[in-house]
């Protein structure tokens, strides 16, 4: 028995197929979920993929957050279902208040698309167990609204509890993937909830899972092997 991992398709999702492929490459079974359907098909975990659901109208993720499938995702995430939000999925998780803070437009007002260097700050979440703490990875980043913001109290709480899961590596050449790409506070690239089952990040691990394509790196694959290992040994 392998684990079944659902991937939600919203109107405007772009990376749902790549995410299902990454799940399959990791050895789990991807299950397509539809935004209008409350039924999560008894999956063991859910990924909210990247894209521009509802054209980012109102705020990125603001409309998707009220879709029927999210009713189930929110209820089950609170009960411990592992949920990963990538890019637009991260934005949906903050809009749904499953993760604290919010996402705003990049501080330089431009779309950004590049290979980004990150440091794994928390390897204890459901989605990061196959990384080691402090490990440096490089995965694609592509977004318009990637600036993570939160009030000072929330930031202090995230830092104190080790809930910053990924941080942009800033000391180095921008052409080599270093730097804060969007003005995120504390160089935050991704965070986790208190329980460690809900994780969101802006960069795209699902685009870095095969040596043959993209940057040729597989730095994103451990997301999907981590959750598989966690579910199968649970």
């Amino acid at each position: 028995m392998t684990a079944r991992i659902g991937v939600v398709t919203f109107p405007g999702s772009l990376d749902d197929q790549d995410t299902r492929r990454a799940i399959r490459l990791a050895g789990a079974e991807p299950v397509a979920l539809w935004h209008k359907d409350k039924d999560l098909k008894q999956v063991d975990a859910v990924v909210l993929p990247g894209g521009f659901s509802y054209g980012d109208y109102l705020r990125a993720g603001a409309i998707s957050r009220f879709s029927p499938v999210m009713e189930s995702v929110i209820a089950q995430a609170k009960a411990g279902l592992p949920v990963l939000g990538i890019c637009n999925g991260f934005q949906i998780l903050t809009e749904a208040h499953l993760l604290p803070g919010g996402m705003l437009g990049n501080d330089h007002l431009h779309f950004v698309c590049r290979d980004q260097r990150l440091r794994v700050e928390n390897a204890r979440t459901a989605w990061t167990g196959d990384y080691s703490e402090g490990q440096e990875i490089r995965v694609p980043l592509k977004n318009m609204d990637g600036r993570y913001v939160a009030d000072r109290y929330t930031l202090d709480e995230l830092e104190a509890e080790g809930r910053v899961a990924f941080r942009y590596l800033v000391d180095g050449d921008a052409a080599d993937g270093y730097g804060n790409p969007n003005g995120s506070l504390n160089d935050i690239a991704g965070i986790t909830n208190e329980a460690g089952n809900v994780v969101g990040l802006m960069p795209h691990p699902e685009h870095a899972v095969e040596p043959l394509v993209g940057s040729g790196r597989t730095d994103g694959l451990p997301f999907f092997t981590s959750i598989l290992k966690k579910l199968v040994t649970a």
Binding site: R59, A62, F66, T94, E95, H97, P100, G101, L104, V149
Partner: peptide, 8 residues
């Protein structure tokens, strides 16, 4: 709940 995100 919708028109504004009161977090930001």
């Amino acid at each position: 709940s919708f028109l504004a995100n009161t977090v930001i």
